[in-house]
Design a protein around this nucleic acid. Structure first.
Lengths: 244, 244
DNA sequence: GGCAAGGAGTCATCCGATGTATTTCTCGAA
DNA sequence: TTCGAGAAATACATCGGATGACTCCTTGCC
């Protein structure tokens, strides 16, 4: 194993072993390099890699620190990785969102504090009727993010945030090509908020499913058979799935 | 922005822009460094970072290549990141799994090819009655992974694989401390397999939920009130949740 | 045709030097 | 005493070059 990879493992172990607590400062490059038995250059490669995934935070002129390691930090990494996936996997991400979003919404119906539910309503009300596409997108993302936060589960927030990025582009297309989509989306948002306000978890779950499926259906139709086939290649030999 | 970070962005753009297709080979370090206008050392830091998240694949003596960028590669990265989270967030991961696992199982009930369902049954049958804890764990992980694969959604496979890692440890504890857990788990596995074989999606979904909740309930009880409070901090000001 | 030695190409690692940002300390003015 | 400018210390940022190790391909022998 290359010394750099070993350094990554060593640093990871130092963190998991408690030697380096979240927020702790690492020894300076020269010292840590000597301790791990490699050169500064190689150590820097390891630190850079751990820095990209938000495990370490390097500050020039100051020092290198362990981040808080909170689940929210998982977000940026996931989003970064997801960015690399091609458009032909959007349906797979959407399918996962179709599972997560209703679950998160149902949790929010039970756990979301009243103040946050109110804030959610204000967010919807703040959107002007003649909003631009960018405003619509931003409002939509924030709406779903608030619901995820309302679930009280930071891991859920991070995952949904991460996998929502690819579907965002899909929604951009939708806004550009389908006239009634904007009004329908706003209506669905209001309905979800209402269900949350009434603490109706089952209704909220169903509405969220309908909401996500709207995008999915549209996208599936748009991509055509090729897209549908891509969405579930493993099922190619399943009886009955070929008749589409 | 540091030159290294800029190099990461540039390389990312080269990939997203199609200049570097999946599997493509990058120019050699010296050339690429010159082209991006930085030193080899700095470039190597960027490459190392992208290598850690499985975007690039560096082979000594050969060259540096773009990986296939398939969703499966998201797996390793997610698992690596998840490793850094403390035990006090296990319940959050478990809660997400409680959402994803039933969804994946329901999908598998419809999409899983017959051959894979059969293989799933053989996996369960292959587990000896006097299996060691390690064997139980491996069999359990493989069981759930096969179901995820059966869903036909590689993104789902990766996510479930990634978030299952932390709960694995929890199941280890369970196996060590609770006598009846092993037999119960095997029984539940058989029931899930049966539901899949009968293509009963709703039953499969319910059984998966029961299965995951078994672990969750046990873990929640074990961790005690402290753990329960940690599981949903955002709800601390929700009426009724303070009565502990 | 098979195989092993040799050479070219490429990454791995190190060293030492210099540039730059941040923090801290010093010291004089108000 | 308080405060701010500037110097000093500290730590990361970046560079160029040198050497080693590994892979792959060519070449020539058997």
């Amino acid at each position: 194993m290359p010394v750099t990879d070993e350094a990554i493992v060593r640093i990871k172990e130092m963190i998991l072993g408690g030697e380096l607590a979240p927020g702790a400062r690492l020894p300076k490059e020269a010292d840590l390099a000597e301790r791990l038995g490699l050169s500064r250059n190689s150590l820097r490669e390891a630190v850079k890699a751990l820095s990209l995934i938000r495990v370490l935070d390097v500050r020039q002129g100051d020092g290198t620190y362990v981040t808080s390691l909170e689940p929210e930090l998982l977000l940026d990494t996931l989003a970064f990785v997801v960015d690399f996936h091609r458009d032909d996997t959007v349906l797979h991400f959407l399918e996962v969102r179709r599972i997560l979003e209703p679950g998160a919404t149902a949790l929010a119906a039970r756990a979301m504090p009243d103040a946050q539910v109110a804030a959610l309503g204000e967010l919807l009300a703040a959107l002007p009727d003649d909003a631009t596409l960018d405003e619509l997108l931003a409002n939509d993302l924030e709406f779903h993010r608030l619901i995820a936060v309302g679930s009280g589960n930071p891991v859920l927030v991070s995952l949904l945030d991460g996998i929502s990025a690819p579907t965002t582009r899909a929604r951009i297309w939708r806004g550009l090509t389908e006239e009634g989509a904007v009004a329908r989306t706003r209506e669905q948002h209001r309905a979800i908020h209402s269900a949350l306000a009434h603490r109706d978890a089952e209704l909220a779950r169903a509405l969220a499913l309908v909401h996500v499926c709207g995008v999915e259906r549209w996208l599936r139709d748009t991509l055509g058979d090729a897209g549908a086939a891509l969405a579930r290649p493993a099922a190619s030999d399943t009886p009955g799935s070929a008749g589409t």
